[in-house]
Nucleic acid binder design. Structure first.
Lengths: 205, 205
DNA sequence: GTAAAACTTGCAGATCGTGCAAACTTGCGA
DNA sequence: TCGCAAGTTTGCACGATCTGCAAGTTTTAC
């Protein structure tokens, strides 16, 4: 065997297994409907025991639902270290950060679409997805708070994070229904619409 | 017995039972932690059988989590029937509608606080609450779409609903932590902050 | 090459949630 | 007042989710 290149063999194997379970869960749920599929079936399809399934996901819902991937530490550090600025500037910076992250670690479009569609029919899946978004939003709020000075649950950081992630979600949702390669233009468009909405001069476009 | 005043005796009884179960669930969850409490305990505390519990709530989560109350038909009709207007005006109208609704059917503050606090420690409760908010948001988006012409999932209606409900949620969250009687000023303040955030001249206050 | 650490698995068991059918309650007209 | 129709509660049986524990297996580190 060669030396572990950048990451332990164990860690890599773990990520692969997790992804295999996720894909199996997603595929089976689309084929048969979320509640006709048992953990036993998913585990079998992924080649692990049911007990192992629960080592990777706390619930069946979580195996299907998708959340945003973690922000890389470098981007986070760079953002937090930037000069102080008024909230609207920070919001603009944040939007750029999220778009960069999205461009660097783009989710798989069809997979995302599948999750969105499943979550429309199955409240459990929707709930699991929303909970992950909420957790991500709280992380982002914390990041903003570090830049502005304050706590993640303060009004301004919380609202900045909420606005930014509303645009991201909306953009991803639209993108999933297209054939486009990149989600970025869709997210940027949502952000612009949001600006326009809260601006007096706006009328339809 | 007097004649049923406005509502059937049966329907009233049903609402009462549902509320008793909810309150029992909330109280027990706060006392012992959400996952130390069983459906059996909740049912016993509410004076019904476990089987009846599931006639009122589909899951244990749902018995604890709170969502926004339905919009009354009259407010909805009034809003939908109003003259066409540009999206930013519709957003302002919508904000007024939600505030009116809130003033007329104010939630119980301490109860709301209890749910918020529980949802911080228990992802299941958070997920159930978010799912209800999402359903409400979709209703609101549909309402906006009827006013603007279009579908609830179109970009502009979806974003208008998202922005308005972000302000409502944030305002309710802040209000729950105060001793104030009315949530309305808190929601209005969140809405103003949101406007300011997306406006170039804004800097800290 | 060996021992610690991490991972997988089976098993037992508590709890959740559902379908069904038998009681029971309420509303309402004869 | 009586009794029927519709709605409600309940018990029972059952499948599925999820957890703790301990034994076996693989990877890593020295």
């Amino acid at each position: 065997m060669s030396a572990p290149s950048g990451e332990s063999l164990r860690g890599r194997r773990r990520r692969e297994t997790k992804r295999e379970i996720h894909l199996a869960a997603l595929r089976l749920a689309r084929e048969h409907g979320f509640d006709k599929v048992t953990v036993e079936m998913i585990s079998a399809a992924a080649g692990v025991s049911p007990r192992t399934f629960f080592n990777y996901f706390p619930t069946k819902d979580a195996a299907v639902a998708q959340g945003p991937p973690d922000l890389p530490d470098e981007l986070v550090a760079e953002f937090a270290a930037a000069a102080a600025a008024p909230p609207n500037v920070v919001l603009a910076d944040l939007a750029r950060l999220l778009v960069r992250h999205l461009a660097e670690a783009p989710p798989h479009r069809e997979e995302l679409l599948a999750v969105f569609e499943l979550s429309r029919e199955h409240p459990q899946v929707l709930a699991a997805m929303l909970a992950r978004f909420e957790a991500f939003q709280l992380e982002v709020a914390d990041l903003v708070a570090r830049r502005l000075g304050g706590q993640a649950r303060d009004e301004v950081p919380a609202l900045i994070a909420a606005v930014a992630l509303t645009a991201v979600r909306q953009g991803m949702d639209r993108w999933a229904r297209t054939e486009d390669d990149s989600p970025v233009p869709h997210v940027e468009r949502s952000m612009e619409l949001l600006h326009a909405l809260l601006t007096p001069e706006f009328s339809h476009d």
